[in-house]
Amino acid sequence: MQGAYKVLFFIPSLFSLVVGAMLFTWILNPVSGPIAYLMKSLGMTMPNWSNSGILAITVICFITNWKVFGYNFILLLTGLGSIPANIIDAAKIDGIPKWKLIWNVILPMNRGIAIYVLILTIVQGLQYVFTPINVITTGGPYYGSSNIIYQTYLNAFVLYKTGTSSALAIVTFIVFLVLLFIEIRFVEGKAKNYA
């Protein structure tokens, strides 16, 4: 049964982000989408989320999370499965409460994988959010749904401001270097200590 859940959660990561963005654009269409029809039957109206910066960012975040959730879920589940059963059994025999078992045993033993998933999520978020922004909002309204990666692309290939684009690319590179340092320091370093 666990394998079926893994497959079910992993399926969205197989879809292209363009397909996901188009699918969610149709589902969340404020005029003719299924959610708009459902809300209309309940006597409510769906807001035009593409004209609001905060709602557009929320939808884009939802699409990106839909894409990366399954892969990260599998990684975290694998980390939980790698905890030796005898440690958990010994804690249960000693009568340790479940919250202490989670806080003092399970979370510290999964710290490396949790940091790895956090860094991977940040990197994927910066990369993957480009496609929904480009397909759905093109950074609008008034660049309210834009991010640093999309601004780099916009300045380089649309506005031809290569200096601004280069500066944004360098800032992005520094962010990725910091994330790489954190990953090497906390994840790779812990792996060497266990070896």
Rank of each mutant, 00 (worst) to 15 (best):
Y116I: 00
I122H: 13
R111C: 01
I148F: 01
P141Y: 10
P108T: 05
V129Q: 06
Y116P: 04
T152C: 11
N104T: 07
N155F: 06
L159G: 00
F176I: 13
V135I: 15
V117S: 14
V158D: 10
K161I: 01
T162V: 06
V135R: 05
N134F: 15
R111T: 10
I106E: 09
I149A: 13
V105Q: 11
I119L: 09
I106F: 01
T164C: 02
Y142M: 11
T164N: 05
T152R: 07
N147R: 00
L120P: 00
I115F: 03
I174L: 14
Y150L: 12
L168T: 12
V158W: 08
M109N: 06
L159P: 00
Q151L: 15
V135N: 08
Q151F: 15
L154C: 06
L120F: 08
T131Y: 01
A169F: 12
S145M: 01
G125V: 09
Q127I: 02
N110D: 11
R111K: 14
I174G: 09
V105P: 09
Y143E: 08
T172G: 08
P141A: 07
A114E: 05
F173Q: 00
A169M: 13
I148Q: 02
G163V: 02
F173G: 03
I106V: 06
F130T: 01
L168M: 15
I122A: 14
N110V: 11
L154E: 14
V123D: 07
A169R: 08
F173A: 08
V105R: 00
V123E: 13
I174H: 08
Y150R: 12
L107P: 11
G112I: 00
V158C: 03
I113A: 05
I119K: 03
L126H: 05
G144D: 01
A167S: 03
N134L: 15
Y116C: 04
A156Q: 10
I174R: 10
T162D: 07
I119Q: 06
L159Q: 05
Y153D: 15
Y160G: 06
T138W: 09
N147Q: 05
I113T: 09
G144A: 01
S165E: 08
S145I: 01
V123F: 12
G125I: 04
Y153R: 14
A114W: 04
Y153A: 14
T137V: 08
T138I: 10
Y142A: 12
S165Q: 09
N104M: 11
M109D: 02
P108N: 10
